[in-house]
Amino acid sequence: MKKTILLGALTVAGLAAGTAAAATLDDVKARGKLNCGVSTGLVGFAAPDASGEWAGYDVAICRAVAAAVLADPTAVEFVPTTGKTRFTALASGEVDMLARNTTWTFTRDVDLKFEFVGINYYDGQGFMVPKSLGVTSAKDLDGATVCIQTGTTTELNLADFFRSNNMSYEPVPIETNAEAQQQYLAGACDTLTTDASGLAATRAAFENPGDHVVLPEIISKEPLGPLVRHGDQQWGDIVRWTLNALITAEELGITSANIDELAKGTNNPEINRLLGTEGDLGGMFGLDKQWAYRAIKAGGNFGEIFEKNIGENTPLGLSRGLNALWTEGGLIYSPPFR
């Protein structure tokens, strides 16, 4: 259509590699919009509502970053990415960041040249069984038929778990989550295994969720978090510390309700530094003093985002568990703002 498009199409490969380190922050500011890669729909984490507005736990991270950088939580272009296209979308610059239920692993971090800026959800693989089966522990599943999504890490985790416990199982391969629900309900398998948050979402959709239980064993570590490209430390820092600001806000008791009050100045120096009434932390990475104030204001602190999208009062009904603050027995911990 436009000249740039045609020229681009004719330009050859080599040019691309060298320009990767360009400042993402400048691009985002110039564009006036943050391009944020999300999933193509995952209950509680990312989905458009009836009016086309995206909402969810991952979406809230995008909005917080947009609020910090562009002073507008709605200045986000959400780019749905599938499990197959997500990494190229990020590597090619189609999106500025990815907040898409992506497990932080060695190869993704090192080999694919991404930077995971933190962990916003500690997930792990679990099992769901019908109550009528009378199973209370995953160790009782010897000889069970298991519905499992093929080609995922869950498949490998499952094999490891059964082997290390000297048990046997029969896999029923399935392709998508929707298919998993159907197969499991139709009794094609004794148990369904996937990430615990996914199990909760699946169970919430059942007509009689009470007839099914999620077993207590978690057989793998799935730390999920937002990620950016290697090579632009400044942008990585912005996304990392936006997430940390949300966590610290919960720790310091800053909520969307009292933030305006606290932003006038308090006698807690860390709150003052975070909200920009003392010092100039934002200036160190090219933002203004109010960046964290806006990020927190966008959707509330970490705990508020959790409760609103996936917490116990939502259909998903996830308890904080590992995702509670470190002060409350969880793993969520932010380095200090100093």
Binding site: T4, I5, A9, V12, A13, A16, A89, A91, S92
Partner: peptide, 12 residues
Amino acid sequence: LNYFLPKGTEFD
């Protein structure tokens, strides 16, 4: 194509 085209190319 994303890899081949120069970064920032607006190829819809």
